[in-house]
Amino acid sequence: MNPVAHAVRLGLARGWIEFRHGLTSSTDIYFNAFIAIAFVVVLYFQREVTLPGTNLSLSAATLPGMLALLVVVGGLAGTVGTLSVEREDGTLLRAKALPHGMTGYLVGKIIVTSAGGLVTMLIVLVAGLVMVPAIRQPGAGEWTLFAGTVALGLLAMLPWGAVIGSLISNPQAAGGLSMLSISLLTTTSGIFYPITSMPEWLQVVSQIFPLYWLALGMRAALAPDGAVAAEIGQSWREFETLGVLGLWALAGLLLAPPILRRMARRESGSAVQQRRERAIQRVG
Rank of each mutant, 00 (worst) to 15 (best):
N2C: 02
V4L: 04
A5G: 06
V8L: 09
L10D: 08
G15A: 01
W16Y: 05
F19W: 10
R20A: 10
R20W: 13
S26A: 14
S26M: 13
T27Y: 14
I29T: 08
Y30H: 05
F34S: 13
A38G: 01
A38M: 14
V42F: 14
F45P: 04
P52W: 07
L56D: 08
S59Q: 06
S59C: 03
G65W: 12
V73D: 02
A77I: 09
G81E: 11
G81D: 11
G81I: 08
S84P: 00
R87K: 15
R87Q: 15
D89V: 12
G90E: 02
T91E: 11
L92T: 09
L92K: 04
L93A: 11
R94D: 01
A95K: 01
L98V: 05
Y105P: 01
L106M: 14
V107C: 05
G108H: 05
I110Q: 13
T120P: 01
V124L: 02
V126N: 07
V130M: 10
P133V: 03
W143H: 02
F146R: 00
L158F: 05
G161A: 04
I164H: 07
G165E: 09
L167H: 08
L167A: 14
N170D: 15
P171C: 04
L177T: 15
M179V: 14
S181K: 10
T186M: 15
T186H: 06
T187C: 06
Y193V: 00
T196C: 06
W201L: 08
L202H: 01
Q203V: 10
S206K: 11
I208P: 04
I208S: 05
P210I: 09
L211S: 00
L214W: 04
L214T: 13
A215N: 12
L216A: 13
P224F: 14
P224W: 10
D225H: 14
A227G: 08
A227R: 13
A227S: 15
A227K: 10
V228R: 14
A230G: 08
I232K: 14
I232E: 14
I232C: 07
G233F: 15
W236L: 06
R237D: 13
R237P: 00
F239E: 13
F239N: 12
L245H: 02
G246S: 12
G246M: 06
L247N: 07
W248M: 09
A249E: 05
L253E: 04
L253V: 10
A256P: 04
P258K: 01
P258E: 05
I259V: 13
M263C: 06
G269T: 10
G269D: 09
V272W: 00
V272A: 11
R275T: 06
R276P: 00
R278G: 03
A279M: 12
A279K: 09
G284A: 15
